[in-house]
Amino acid sequence: MVPLTWYLILAAAIFCVGLFGVLARRNAVAIIMGIELMLNAVNLNLLAFWRYQSPADVAGQVFVIIVFAVAAAEAAVGLALIISIYRRRTTVSPEEIDLLKW
């Protein structure tokens, strides 16, 4: 059997890769891709803990389902914002979206 530690290490690695993408990419759509990677790593972690620690308890699976719903909402609103900004200012680079910066 696969030890739980392997799943945790893999999830941590994917999470950190996603974090790097969020911090380093210059394109807002690429930042959203990084966020999706991070959410996926968290889901993997949650489900691994559910399977190894308490498979009789449904709370782990419910948590994953809520994360799915929130990720879908986040992607829809985030991409709508990007399209709106693109229409008004013809850019998708967060460096140039400085309307609220002073």
Binding site: M1, P3, L4, L8, A12, F15, C16, Y52, S54, P55
Partner: peptide, 16 residues
């Protein structure tokens, strides 16, 4: 995260 995970008393095999 690796340091935390490696000192975790993690089960080797999944629960039934």
């Amino acid at each position: 995260l690796l340091a935390i995970v490696l000192q975790l008393p993690a089960p080797i095999r999944p629960a039934l």
